[in-house]
Amino acid sequence: MEKLYFKFTTTQPVTKFVHVGVVASGDLEIILRPNNHSYSTLNIITGSDGFKSTWSNVLSRFFDRYPLQGDFEINDFGATPGVVNLRLSQVMEVLKNEQ
């Protein structure tokens, strides 16, 4: 298990709380809370050690495309980058649906 922290400058503040996913094998959950900063924070607990740079890449690519601003908590039980990206995009879609 490893704890990771990331911060990204972002531009689209979210106004809703969002939760997606389950901490199942190969999956993860994401909890998003609105914040008042001009950046997003991510506190990640992951069961797979040694993937910090992969996480950084996944998150950079996501925020580059969808600069959602808020505080993210992620509990990851060995998801592949594809699954991580899917869950992050689902957060985006939940927000979109509620608009």
Partner: peptide
Amino acid sequence: LIPQNIVPES
């Protein structure tokens, strides 16, 4: 769980 190196769920 975290003290035992296990990922928790919210």
